[in-house]
């Protein structure tokens, strides 16, 4: 039962964030790139204020899979490292923490480029 509830909340929160972004697309002239940056910064702010972990406790993947999670992850890495290493840590922390995803994306993109070509629609 609790599993079902978890997934329901993941679905609900994930969908909620995405439809918020969709409303921005329809109602304003914002481009996807701007909306992505907006949500990314939202994630950084939430993490910076320490609110993100409470949302994550309920929403789980519903908030960590959207770009908000990426922002929060960056901010958390930077904050943790800044407090452990000091001034220099703030610059490295975000990248270190998110390097798994970004690295995978770059390598996989490169590999896929070797195999496939874009198609005309």
């Amino acid at each position: 039962m609790s599993i079902l509830l978890t997934y329901l909340s993941v679905f609900g929160f994930g969908g909620l964030f995405c439809s918020l972004a969709q409303i921005l697309i329809i109602k304003t002239k914002l481009t996807p790139a701007r909306i992505l940056v907006l949500f990314l910064i939202l994630g950084i702010v939430l993490e910076g204020l320490g609110v993100y972990k409470y949302i994550f406790a309920i929403a789980k993947a519903g908030v960590s899979i959207p770009i908000i999670g990426f922002g929060a992850s960056l901010a958390r890495g930077s904050i943790e490292m800044a407090r452990q290493v000091g001034f220099l840590g703030a610059f490295a922390g975000g990248l270190v923490r998110t390097a798994y995803g970004v690295g995978a994306a770059i390598v996989a993109s490169y590999l896929i480029t070797l195999i496939f070509s874009p198609k005309s629609k």
Binding site: L40, A82, G94
Partner: peptide
């Protein structure tokens, strides 16, 4: 834009 803004603003948050 996502990578650049992410790094800049997370660094600010860390500082």
């Amino acid at each position: 834009p996502v990578v650049v803004n992410g790094i800049v603003w997370s660094t600010v948050a860390g500082l």
